[in-house]
């Protein structure tokens, strides 16, 4: 009771957000029942036939189920890692730039690709990576004498291409959050370090990086929420029959079988499966961060 008296403003501050979450998120969550139904819009939740786990079977009982899930995990896992490392490193490099104008200039340019859509980028990549006189292959051939690489049509290269192009597109945008973390660092720390005679490298190691780490852990953990989203727009625009083996992911599969056919039950079931896996991973990394660094991510 005493607790409530002292802390009522804290609860109150949460009330507006909670109302929104209940109305627009928790109440609609009732729709999860569709995962266990052969949902028909005209029958609704109450009258659609219950099918138990049939919708989940559609995902797991295909000959290529393991292949597709594995592709998804690899592609999105690597994306999560590199979409964390690249902006992190880039923020460090940018932090060393003294001239404010140059810094802002670079910052602005690298965040531009985020605004390109994959439809457009797909077309550009097709040309740039072409084995038939594409820019990248020309450079590889003239500089290193390598035979043209079929980046988009070779099972050994497709994932690489997907990940690199995604990192390229997003690293500038991803840097923003780290720059904000850096902006929060108290400058007196650097001043003190300099008076102690610490080298720039030491300052980076002991002040800059530690001040970015919490945010990096948070961003990384939250990214796990997307562990089974390997980037539909990108894959859909880039994949082709030659790379189905390494490039077909859960979302492209859902698109072809559930979305295009209006199979809402199947779509919901797969969505639920993805959410459960994400939740488990987030739980694990939350525990790890708490145990190892005594840090609550959220």
């Amino acid at each position: 009771m005493k607790h409530l008296k002292r802390n009522w403003p804290l609860h109150l501050m949460l009330v507006p957000s909670l109302i929104f979450l209940i109305v627009f998120s928790l109440v609609p969550m009732g729709g999860i029942v569709m995962a266990f139904q052969n949902y028909k819009p005209f029958l609704g939740f109450t009258k659609s036939a219950w099918v138990g786990l049939d919708n989940f079977r559609a995902l797991f009982e295909r000959q290529d189920s393991i292949e597709v899930i594995w592709n998804t995990l690899i592609i999105s896992g690597l994306k999560i890692i590199f979409n964390l490392l690249a902006p992190f490193t880039f923020a460090l490099l940018l932090n060393e730039v003294r001239k404010a104008f140059f810094k802002r200039f670079v910052q602005t340019l690298v965040y531009l690709p985020h605004f390109l859509s994959w439809v457009i980028l797909g077309g550009i990549l097709l040309d740039v990576l072409s084995t038939d006189g594409g820019f990248v292959n020309q450079i590889l051939t003239s500089l290193f004498g390598i035979k043209p690489i079929f980046f988009l049509g070779d099972n050994n290269w497709f994932r690489f291409t997907v990940i690199v192009s995604d990192v390229w597109k997003e690293f500038g945008f991803g840097t923003i959050v780290f720059l904000a973390a850096l902006a929060n660092v108290n400058p007196s720390l650097y001043e003190a370090a300099e008076i102690d005679g610490a080298s720039r490298w030491k300052q980076t190691l002991h002040i800059t990086i530690p001040s970015m780490l919490p945010i990096a852990v948070v961003v990384g953990t939250l990214a796990l929420g997307n562990i089974l989203n390997a980037g539909f727009d990108q894959i859909f625009n880039l994949y082709n029959p030659l790379v189905y083996q390494k490039g077909d992911i859960i979302d492209t599969f859902v698109y072809r079988t559930a979305i295009l056919n209006g199979e809402m039950g199947l779509g919901t079931a797969i969505g639920l499966f993805k959410s459960v896996i994400s939740m488990v991973l987030i739980l694990v990394s939350y525990r790890l961060a708490y145990k190892l660094a005594n840090y609550r991510i959220f």
Binding site: I22, V27, M29, G30, V33, G44
Partner: peptide
Amino acid sequence: MVMVSALFTGCS
């Protein structure tokens, strides 16, 4: 919540 919204949508 699931129960509430199931009721909620049932009527329509």
